[in-house]
Amino acid sequence: MMGRRYLKSGDRVTFESHDEQCKPFQQSGTVKQYIYPDFHPDGYIEVVDEAGDIILYGNAGKEIQKTR
């Protein structure tokens, strides 16, 4: 069993996104908000880009990886 995800505001993360032609690419950003309620297996996450615009929100699945 996987433990809780330990992501917090300010963490740099990468995840797979898709461009206008639906081609996958690695996107990176900074965690703005991460909520881990007891009733949800992955939690809720908001990731922002350099300008502070939200580029990802929703389930914090395992495809979201913290970068070192």
Score class of each variant (00 low, 15 high):
M1P: 08
M1S: 11
M1H: 11
M2N: 13
M2E: 15
G3M: 07
R4E: 08
R5L: 09
Y6K: 14
L7T: 04
L7M: 10
L7E: 08
K8E: 14
K8T: 03
S9G: 08
R12H: 12
R12Q: 12
V13R: 05
T14A: 02
T14F: 00
F15D: 03
F15T: 01
E16Q: 14
E16D: 08
H18N: 07
H18Y: 15
H18R: 15
D19K: 04
D19Y: 07
E20R: 11
E20T: 01
Q21M: 09
Q21I: 01
C22R: 14
K23Y: 07
P24S: 13
F25Q: 04
F25V: 08
F25L: 06
Q26W: 10
Q27S: 11
G29W: 13
G29Q: 07
G29S: 05
T30A: 01
V31R: 03
V31L: 03
K32S: 11
K32I: 01
K32L: 09
Q33S: 12
Y34C: 04
I35R: 10
I35N: 09
D38W: 10
D38F: 11
D38R: 12
F39A: 12
F39S: 12
F39E: 14
F39W: 15
H40Y: 05
P41V: 04
P41N: 10
D42I: 02
D42H: 13
G43K: 05
G43D: 05
G43S: 08
Y44G: 01
E46R: 07
V47Y: 05
V47G: 00
V47R: 01
V48G: 01
E50Q: 12
E50D: 14
A51I: 04
G52S: 04
G52I: 06
D53T: 11
I54W: 01
I54D: 00
I54R: 03
I55T: 02
I55Q: 11
L56P: 00
L56M: 07
Y57W: 13
G58P: 03
N59Y: 13
N59T: 15
N59A: 13
G61R: 06
K62G: 06
E63Y: 13
E63N: 14
E63C: 02
E63Q: 11
I64F: 09
Q65V: 15
Q65D: 09
K66I: 01
T67P: 00
T67R: 05
R68S: 13
R68H: 08
R68I: 14
